[in-house]
Design a protein around this nucleic acid. Sequence first.
DNA 1: CCCGGGCTCTTACGGTGTAAGGGAAGAGGC
DNA 2: GCCTCTTCCCTTACACCGTAAGAGCCCGGG
Lengths: 261, 261
Amino acid sequence: MAPASKREQPPEPAGPGGCNGSTRRRPPLSRSAVLEAGIDYVDQHGLGELSMRRLGAFLQVEGMSLYRYVRSREELLDAMVDRVMDQLYADPSVLLGPGDDWDDFLRRIATGVRRVAHTHPQLFPLVATRHPAAPWIRPPLRSLRWVEGFLSGLLARGFSDEAAIYAYRAFGSFLVGRLLVDVAAAGVSPGKTVAQAEQVTSGQSPDSPVEHLHGTEVDLQAFPTITRLADKLAVEDLGDEFDDALETLITRVDRARRALT
Amino acid sequence: MAPASKREQPPEPAGPGGCNGSTRRRPPLSRSAVLEAGIDYVDQHGLGELSMRRLGAFLQVEGMSLYRYVRSREELLDAMVDRVMDQLYADPSVLLGPGDDWDDFLRRIATGVRRVAHTHPQLFPLVATRHPAAPWIRPPLRSLRWVEGFLSGLLARGFSDEAAIYAYRAFGSFLVGRLLVDVAAAGVSPGKTVAQAEQVTSGQSPDSPVEHLHGTEVDLQAFPTITRLADKLAVEDLGDEFDDALETLITRVDRARRALT
DNA sequence: CCCGGGCTCTTACGGTGTAAGGGAAGAGGC
DNA sequence: GCCTCTTCCCTTACACCGTAAGAGCCCGGG
């Protein structure tokens, strides 16, 4: 236990010639600051490393202080997710101009959400996974503003109710599927995954109590197709496929737009 | 703390006229049993309730004993996920007959994975979210057996390497997106979500330090489109849309099959 | 000057993952 | 019979977690 970590001198913990003086060193800690720090922290250290005390230390504050701005850790996570997606709402490259067609609208949102996923690869699984606040909200467009904006944007461009809802669902599923699989394969806790997969056929006595401790310790000779295609399977850049799939989705939405009423 | 719970008499804890005698009361605890119990526990109580000690109690065992069969909690979760998906591999309704066409193959796997998602709604997010053991494995088909089976199954039916890989990625993303969004909207911790959304406009003083404590407390008057379409948006049964989208995916895969070499 | 209210810190409690070793129950040899 | 060895499970212990309750500091208004 090390509770007396750095709490001796309140005004000056780090740096010999620091810029103290009259200005207080720490920005005054608001809900926005807490949320932003949480997002930064998860981006840097991963979701599993986020605890209230550690986030407090990250903000040079005592952990319990965060509860002034956040009801609980769960609510913190929800708010972080909402914040990340709502930043997207204010993005000028995503915002819809009055003359834009509906397909441009979809393309803009798609690339915006894609950018969010790749900017916050550790956080994006939560965007897809956390329970939405209302039953008619579906990931990844998780706020009322987004749902309203999406639906009314399409309705104003000639979509029927049914077609707009169809597009809402198809679009959300498309984004979640594509981006989550991208992110799960790529921006994960570094090294561990590949290292674990590479320690193949470590000599283990077969009468060990563990039946097959982790499936990856079989050697790859039993899987010739994987072995042969390993290079092509490991491709990281899926941008082209994303764009292709997006265009296919848009034509599908277009067909629904004309078919539904 | 109650450590002396029921450890006094080893052979007989519950029931006055129980069926004891020579047979020991508890099945002897194997890795399979631990995994199966973990899956059951998560299905019943949700992922957040799973702890090593509670799972131990569920198995009438002391918590630490689980570490004989599982390296850590993380590995337990991975193994549970793998097990759920590998059960699918043994499912006779999913297995491919020699005369089946490739599109039947895809339909069988899709409905199988869909059934898994709806059978284990609390666990399925992990299937989509956990980091795969190798960089060329992508959710939800997370085992080497599955990847090998999928690819070789398509290759044996005339797919080129590129077309098979394309199908592998498109199919995985499709399943993850559709099923994850279904599951996130439906089989969640019961009641809490809707209740939270319904406590609208609880009178809160506007100068509270919380900026907007949770976004759902605004009333819906500002969102007319959502209000008007709420009924249609809340639809739970997305089976038809799943099937339609699956057929669309199959035609897209077919086009790729013919186009790629 | 005091003082009151908003932030932050302190303390505390039960729960969590897991490292390390102890002890009982059965298997096998003599 | 006994003795030993292996296998399995339990006990203890530690650092850390989320969070409830209240104490203390600091700053602005009178």
